[in-house]
Design a protein around this nucleic acid. Structure first.
Length: 472
DNA sequence: ATTAGGG
DNA sequence: CCCTAAT
């Protein structure tokens, strides 16, 4: 992807908040059959981009988007109902998403032959967009990753209380999409949400972005909080509980729901091994709202158990997705008494992001910032996992070098991209997590040892070596 | 209270 | 993942 191209995305505001607040990890796109969507190819930015919309002007997509793009928007908006609030974003080059149209009255016109969307533009809301915020969140651009951003824009579940007075902004970073919002009020004008500050969710490396996972439609405004969510807020134990506590609550107003009902019914959920869809949404907000009752009734179960709410179709299909990769598939029954919580690649990715952001050893930081929603996953867990990742990446390296026969490994293959990243980071942050063999740092590329690598944003490097003493 | 390492 | 020495 080159500069000067853009992608489009459609985001219906209504569906943002509850997604970020309550689901955190598992966000549902209402009824978008992503497999049916052909992403519009990036288009060279024409001179008239981004199209300026005259306040109060009724704008039709015809005047902005080409056929393919319109189709795309159409597909994605099929679950939204008339009157939803929405914003069409256009991400130009590698910087930010600029709102093209922001509307609180999304009018969808469905005629057999000629489906099209029209958007009523409302001047005030557009004005309210805080553009500066968009840019502050911008970090490294990585054009390739941008392809997938539109996916992330489309996640979301409905919220009864997400209303028009919400202002939020959004930006793309090299690592993901970040957003901020404030003034969340419900119909009566009460503030039901608060400033959630800046959050972000990660964008994965883009594999073929056209084949996304299917997501089933779910009932409108009927989903219950996920078990996961309950888990988090009721997490009773552990030495670290204090900190977790503050983060995991959610507004009472949050009733998650799928998006519309007139959706494209997803067919047999095709599970791509690409797990990207399950990326975490990090919400470092501090809730001041009462905990919903549901969350208070404790779930006595092994708090480590997660992901097994047979609740809704969406849920299960998502579970499946997430399990798809890393979990030995738990049959629908509660066989989930497993003690070790399997790491999902989404988590792994978070971890990697964390490490790259804060450095190796900042486990509590990473925990707080990227795993605040995961009740389990203590800083120690993160550390251990990282150690294992290093090991895994090394192993991969080794295998590449010596053994071309490509023998089957005992463990599940981690995506190459991940291992590669781990390796990179391992070089940047020297650390002797080396299970195998005598020599420390065998992992390191003999030639490129850790020094010259781009500094991106590597904060604290700690080159700790074995300095452990024998206890007496 | 946290982290590094070994088990 | 657990445990514990070391910070």
């Amino acid at each position: 992807m080159d500069q000067g191209y853009y992608h489009i995305g459609l985001w219906v505001l209504n569906h943002l908040m509850s997604a970020t607040i309550c689901c955190k990890k598992k966000v549902i796109v209402g009824n978008i059959n992503l497999n049916e969507v052909n992403y519009p190819p990036a288009r060279q930015v024409p001179d008239e981009m981004p199209p300026e919309v005259q306040p109060g002007h009724l704008q039709e997509t015809d005047s902005i988007f080409n056929t393919c793009e319109k189709e795309y928007l159409n597909k994605f908006s099929s679950g939204f109902k008339n009157g939803d609030s929405g914003t069409i974003f256009v991400s130009d080059s590698s910087t930010t998403l600029s709102p093209v149209l922001k509307c609180n009255s999304l009018e969808k016109i469905n005629s057999e032959s000629n489906r099209k969307l029209s958007f009523k533009h409302e001047s005030e809301t557009l004005k309210d967009m805080n553009h500066s915020e968009l840019h502050t969140s911008y970090a490294t651009k990585n054009a390739e990753k941008q392809v997938d951003v539109s996916d992330h824009l489309l996640r979301g579940v409905g919220s009864d209380h997400m209303e028009k007075d919400t202002a939020f902004s959004l930006g793309i970073t090299g690592e993901g999409v970040s957003y901020s919002s404030r003034n969340v009020q419900d119909d009566e004008g009460r503030v039901v949400g608060r400033d959630i500050g800046l959050g972000s969710f990660n964008v994965h490396e883009s594999e073929p972005s056209c084949q996304r996972n299917n997501v089933c439609a779910s009932q409108r405004r009927s989903r219950k909080p996920t078990l996961r969510y309950i888990d988090e807020s009721s997490e009773p134990i552990s030495k670290h509980s204090k900190k977790r506590r503050r983060i995991s609550t959610a507004p009472s107003a949050m009733k998650t729901s799928g998006v519309g009902s007139n959706a494209i019914k997803s067919r047999t959920p095709v599970l791509c091994s690409d797990e990207s869809f399950m990326e975490a949404i990090q919400v470092p907000f501090d809730s001041q709202v009462q905990v919903p009752v549901e969350s208070q009734k404790q779930v006595p179960v092994d708090s480590r158990v997660k992901y097994h709410t047979p609740d809704s179709a969406t849920e299960t299909s998502l579970d499946k997705l997430e399990h798809d990769f890393s979990t030995p598939v738990i049959s629908k029954k509660v066989k989930c008494s497993r003690k070790h919580k399997v790491w999902t690649i989404a988590e792994v990715r978070d971890l990697i992001d964390g490490v790259s952001q804060y450095g190796v050893g900042k486990w509590t930081e990473i925990k707080k910032l990227l795993f605040s929603s995961s009740a389990h996953r203590t800083p120690v867990d993160l550390k251990d996992k990282w150690r294992n990742l290093i090991k895994a990446s090394c192993a991969e390296e080794q295998r590449k070098k010596e053994d071309k026969k490509g023998r089957n490994q005992p463990w599940r293959p981690l995506p190459k991209s991940i291992l590669r990243r781990v390796r990179e980071l391992a070089m940047i942050y020297p650390c002797p997590y080396n299970g195998n063999s005598e020599d420390l740092n065998v992992c390191q590329d003999s030639s490129t040892s850790y020094s010259s690598i781009k500094t991106g944003s590597s904060p604290h490097i700690r080159g700790k070596k074995l300095h452990r003493k024998i206890a007496l």
